[in-house]
Design a protein around this nucleic acid. Sequence first.
DNA 1: GAGTGTGAAATTGTTCACAGCG
DNA 2: CGCTGTGAACAATTTCACACTC
Lengths: 208, 208
Amino acid sequence: MRQVALSTVRRLALYLQFLEELEHKGKQTVSSRALAERGGATPAQVRKDLSFFGSFGKRGIGYPVGRLAARIRDILGLGRRYRVILVGAGRIGMALASYPGFDQRGFDVVTVYDVDPAKVGRKMEGKLVRHINDMDGELAKEPADIAVIGTPAGPAQAIAERLVKSGVRAILNFAPVSLHLPEDVTVTNVNMALELEALSYALSRKKA
Amino acid sequence: MRQVALSTVRRLALYLQFLEELEHKGKQTVSSRALAERGGATPAQVRKDLSFFGSFGKRGIGYPVGRLAARIRDILGLGRRYRVILVGAGRIGMALASYPGFDQRGFDVVTVYDVDPAKVGRKMEGKLVRHINDMDGELAKEPADIAVIGTPAGPAQAIAERLVKSGVRAILNFAPVSLHLPEDVTVTNVNMALELEALSYALSRKKA
DNA sequence: GAGTGTGAAATTGTTCACAGCG
DNA sequence: CGCTGTGAACAATTTCACACTC
């Protein structure tokens, strides 16, 4: 196992959320067991996850909260701010754009794009909505790190391709399609309908 | 492999989205390759996923679009409607509540609960917001199948426990905590901050 | 004693490859 | 001959178990 698994990275982010709470409470150390409970993992898994990046704990004691949090932030690349653009001023995207944890964690929503003339030029959740035709030009001048796609399924692929051409290398996709992009572009799909359908499946198993 | 993997179920939901498009276009058959392309999988994986539930395809031809879609809807338990309640009338929850695909796929948001007196009694996105204190009593009279938790992290665990006590067996959780619940309750976590942090990680790898 | 760090074992999930049907 | 269905090989991930340190 050379490359660290995505699931490990995701758990790291979960541990960090807990560590920051502990930091806030002034706790000095934390055990793999406590981290596991909160992160929905097992103690062994926590230790293994952390061991990929070095050994931070003290045997018999646990992990130093502050130092571990700092290290995870470093591993996750949270030591800087990211320029985020949002394409599609629909509800899900806007909900995200105004999510406080967003700004707080270093993600700045710099621009919102839409096609709807009724939205363009107006402010939504404090962000000015611009027309999507201007997107490529503006990205050329001021690149973005991350794009959030909140459009319907139809235009999502074409928009993603334009984004990649403009230098975006990470996409959070809410449109219900798998985007087909060069492999140096990281895409994370969040598909609400799919989550509900998975719950539906689980429920239908239970009666059986 | 006795139990079907969650990842298989999720892919099935993805295939279904594509099949419904094809149905709409009047296409009669589809190959595992075409399904794979859209579902972000390999042809072999599509065939394996489907084979857990029977064999629907014709060799040399492919799968019958309509019949396969119907079968997947059946597997996923989408042949009925679900009563969904939403706890926490924040942006993400409300965005979901008014998501058209929601209603369309058989999920009825029957009630929205919140603690904020400024919200209680008002309509948001066409849904009347009720006070969370009334939740348990109302659920006793009219049970819900699925609850969506859109509260902050703090109260989420306590609310989840109340929901379970009231008979809810499936929870879609947007609060950034792992809920600790009896194992006959299915919980799906959607954690936006975590998704962004995973993208941050991926981006920070690329410069290296 | 309490709790980490980590190879080795077990499990789970994916890909291969090919037999067999339409 | 194209494409499914599937056991068997493979790869990835999780869990175990225990040596070791504080």
